[in-house]
Computed example of a mutant assay.
Amino acid sequence: MTLPITASTALGAHRERLLARAAELETRWYDPGRIWTGANGTPVSADEVAALLEEADKALDPDGWDPRASGLQQLLGGAGDVAYAAVTVLELIICADTDASAAQPLAWDLVPGRTAGEVRTLLRTGAAYAQHYGPGARRRAA
């Protein structure tokens, strides 16, 4: 089942199903804890990933938004361990939404017609995933 990542998905049952589907993919695709380890082997907390995705959401300017100038690549493309884990979380969300077997989150916003609202919803959904399913997550309500 495909659940659209749109601005209307920000709350409610659709997002809950999307998060649960992403958790299923994490379990199937990765060894325990794998996505919560940065590129250089440093553990990354759920709260660090959620915070980065929330910061990216706040930094994304919906007015005059240009994904090539201020999109996900610019917001999350750093080489840091937290960015590496955050991009992996976003891949889980995208794949849970589309039933794809892989996705490139740093190029996802470049799809023609993709809106700033959709990108913000992806970032918020990724943050919610980290808060609910990541190690040490506080399991806050979505």
Rank of each mutant, 00 (worst) to 15 (best):
S70C: 13
I35M: 13
R21L: 11
P67I: 08
A51Y: 04
L11T: 12
P112K: 12
A85C: 15
L19G: 11
K58D: 12
A56N: 09
E55I: 06
I5V: 12
D61G: 11
T98G: 08
E54Q: 15
A107V: 00
G80W: 00
D66Q: 13
V119N: 01
G78F: 01
D57C: 11
A10Y: 04
R28N: 07
Y30N: 11
L72N: 04
G38M: 09
V119L: 04
S45F: 06
D66P: 10
G12Q: 01
R34S: 14
E16C: 13
T37P: 10
A46V: 14
L122S: 09
A22N: 04
R28L: 15
G12D: 00
E26R: 15
A103I: 02
R124I: 10
L52H: 01
A130K: 09
R17C: 10
E91H: 04
G113D: 05
L90A: 09
A128L: 11
R15E: 04
T37K: 13
R68A: 15
R21V: 00
L110S: 05
A103R: 05
G71E: 02
I35V: 15
A116F: 01
P67T: 05
E118L: 03
K58Q: 14
A130T: 03
T125G: 11
G12I: 07
L110K: 10
L60M: 10
R15C: 07
R120N: 07
P67D: 01
S45V: 02
I93C: 01
Y133W: 14
V87A: 07
A96Y: 00
A130N: 05
G126P: 04
P105I: 10
D97C: 13
D31T: 02
A102P: 00
D66I: 15
A13V: 14
P43D: 05
D63P: 01
G38C: 12
T9Y: 02
T27I: 11
G71L: 05
T42C: 08
E54M: 14
G117S: 07
P4I: 01
A56P: 08
R28P: 01
D61W: 04
W29F: 14
T42P: 00
R68N: 12
A69G: 09
A69W: 00
D63Y: 08
A50K: 13
S8F: 06
R124H: 11
E16L: 15
V49N: 00
V44H: 04
A100L: 13
L110G: 05
A127T: 06
A39R: 10
A107C: 02
D97K: 00
R120P: 06
E54C: 15
A39P: 11
L75H: 08
V111F: 13
L11H: 08
T88I: 03
D61M: 13
Q104P: 00
W36T: 03
R15Q: 12
L110E: 07
G134D: 06
L19F: 10
E118F: 03
I5F: 11
A102K: 03
G117C: 10
G126M: 12
T27E: 10
A69H: 01
L18P: 03
Q104H: 09
Q73N: 08
E91V: 06
W108Y: 12
L60C: 09
G64F: 09
Q74A: 15
